[in-house]
């Protein structure tokens, strides 16, 4: 179920990127796209009844772990996503300083 939600989030992110004309809104759409992507990646490794891939003293002898590799990938992707978001917001500030607006339509040039 979450897999479908993830794909819908991806699509909504793309929709936002195409329709929104505000710089902040574009970055928000990027974030939604990234959240959808991260959920999708996790859902690839998940199956019903799987255990979190962490060894504890209570782990059974033959543990039925979900795939840990996608989780490692998502950790990397989250951090990269924050990097791009922060850079995008810094650019948004610069844009505001230069044009006095955050709306792409209100700027003189394109």
């Amino acid at each position: 179920m979450l897999q479908f939600a993830a794909i819908i989030l991806l699509m909504l992110g793309l929709y936002g990127l195409l329709t929104q004309r505000n710089v902040i809104k574009i970055i928000i759409s990027l974030n939604i796209l990234e959240i959808g992507l991260n959920l999708f990646i996790i859902s690839v490794g998940y199956f019903e009844g799987g255990l979190a891939p962490i060894f504890t003293s209570e782990t059974p002898a033959n543990p039925n772990f979900v795939d840990p590799l996608p989780q490692a990938l998502v950790l990397t992707a989250i951090v990269i996503g924050v990097g791009t978001t922060a850079l995008g917001l810094a650019l948004a500030r610069k844009i505001y300083q230069k044009y006095g607006t955050l709306n792409l339509d209100e700027m003189g040039e394109n």
Partner: peptide, 28 residues
Amino acid sequence: KPLQTFNYLVAGTVGSSLYLLGLIILYN
């Protein structure tokens, strides 16, 4: 030219997100 750089950033991020999506399908 912050606006142009911003466009580059958005295009690049969407591109690499699509790359990651394709990659994860292949991994599956």
